[in-house]
């Protein structure tokens, strides 16, 4: 079992003819993901390494029965590409594009929420999602993931997610699904969405959550965990020493006034019964310990 994607997920890549799209899209296919098509306006009828290209998402869905889209297009076109996918009936969209203007992102989010409530957007500015052995949409290296569960991972950061995946796999602990929600201020999918999905997934027995400074999603997640979750959660929060008022690489990683500090997030999570780790490696170690006791 897994969350959001599995071996039946049929994926199209918006931007498959571009450098990034081709690299990651074909990598995803080689991992075993059902990459059934690509979309680039004006290039319909051509193909990329055997994958058919369509002019629009609508055409691609009609021809391939795609259920998910991987959006790899430049920032100025990304919001429109996401809405096009939603309009064509795609239920799950992964957008890895970084540097989408904040105003475009806010409009995109609210357009989805109002007009396409059945569509889930993961990202933007995220590494994507991988259900090891079944489906990989995004930029995660499939080699470092281990199929079979029982751990679910949800994270705002790319490399820290990879570190957690790698540490767990090295110690023989597999993952059900690893979801990178991304580092932007308005992520389409948040911690609570993923925690709820992991709580509902019978194969997932425990969850690692990796947060960082900025916003209050970790605090909201803590509230959700204390009220709604029965499965153990280990958390790590990056940015304890980040100075206020500076965007630490991610657009959303910024302490505004007294809001969004790592300390406040760690405190809220600890109070919710979450095991809080001091660094990403310790998070994996603590999880290995928890998994060993699951029996």
């Amino acid at each position: 079992m897994s969350v959001f994607v599995d071996s039946n997920t049929r994926v199209i890549v918006q931007g498959l003819t571009g450098g990034q799209g081709r690299f990651h899209g074909l990598r995803n296919r080689d991992y075993g993901t059902k990459v059934v098509g690509g979309v680039t306006p004006g290039k319909g009828g051509t193909e990329v390494d055997g994958v058919p290209i369509f002019d629009s998402v609508e055409d691609a869905v009609a021809a391939t029965g795609a259920t998910a889209s991987f959006v790899v297009v430049p920032p100025r076109f990304a919001a429109d590409a996401v809405i096009e996918a939603a309009r064509a009936g795609i239920a799950f969209i992964v957008c890895i594009t970084e540097f989408i203007p904040a105003q475009d992102e806010a409009r995109m989010y609210n357009r989805l929420r109002r007009d396409f409530p059945g569509t889930r957007l993961l990202g933007p500015n995220c590494p994507g999602v991988i259900s090891p052995g079944q489906c990989n949409i995004g930029i995660t290296s499939g080699d470092i993931a281990l199929p079979g569960g029982p751990v679910g991972i949800v994270s705002r950061s790319g490399t820290l997610t990879y570190q957690a995946l790698y540490d767990l796999s090295q110690k023989g602990v597999g993952q059900t699904t690893c979801v990178g929600i991304g580092g932007d201020p308005v992520p389409g999918t948040n911690f609570i969405d993923c925690l709820a999905a992991f709580e509902a997934d019978p194969a997932t027995k425990a969850v690692i959550m990796i947060g960082e400074i900025g916003g209050s999603e970790e605090e909201r997640a803590a509230e959700f965990i204390s009220k709604k979750m029965t499965k153990p959660v280990v958390a790590y929060i990056a940015g304890v020493t980040a100075p206020p008022g500076k965007k630490m690489g991610h657009a959303g990683a910024i302490i505004s006034g007294s809001q969004g500090t790592a300390q406040a997030k760690m405190k809220a999570l600890a109070e919710a019964g979450v095991t809080v780790a001091k660094n990403p490696t310790e998070a994996a170690e603590l999880m290995v310990e928890i998994v060993s006791k699951l029996g």
Binding site: S155, R156, S157, G158, T159, L160, T161, Q163, G183, I210, E212, I213, Y236, A238, G239, V240, T241, A242, M248, G249, H250, A253, A262, N279, P280
Partner: peptide, 10 residues
């Protein structure tokens, strides 16, 4: 990676 860089500072 931004997350790893932040984590390194910590």
């Amino acid at each position: 990676g931004a997350g790893l860089a932040m984590s390194t500072l910590d």
